[in-house]
Amino acid sequence: MLYAILCYDYEDAVGAWTKEEETAVMGRLSAVQEGLARQGRLGPVARLVPTTAATTVRKAQDPVVLDGPFAETKEQLLGFFVVDCADLEEAIETAKDLARANAPGGSYEVRPIAVFRPGQVGTGSAVG
């Protein structure tokens, strides 16, 4: 079963990491991802640009476009992983591995995926 593991954290605090901390955290997260990839369990992974770059389009016949993220929350959605897990237990274990590799504070939300279409993008250079 596929699970989305969504990373929520204080954008301001993550933005205040030094380059060295940033490199260290990203290195440890990569190690967890490599483990998942070796087991053939890792799907798409994304790190999002800060919410200040977000635009919100409200659903309607005549959609309204708003600057900023959909909701002003204390913690923001910063990125996500798609991981293949046998059951919720394994998904939680995977999220725990990621949590231990990451800095304290913030949360991973584990959400089963109902429909998944991997699509075709992301293999080129379009992503920064």
């Binding site: 204080y10 605090a13 993550v14 933005g15 205040a16 030094t18 901390e21 800095a103 304290p104 504070g105």
Partner: peptide, 15 residues
């Protein structure tokens, strides 16, 4: 990340 490093980042962000 050490305790001190993330706490420091939290202080900077909260300041």
């Amino acid at each position: 990340m050490t305790d001190l490093a993330w706490i420091d980042a939290a202080f900077t962000a909260a300041r």
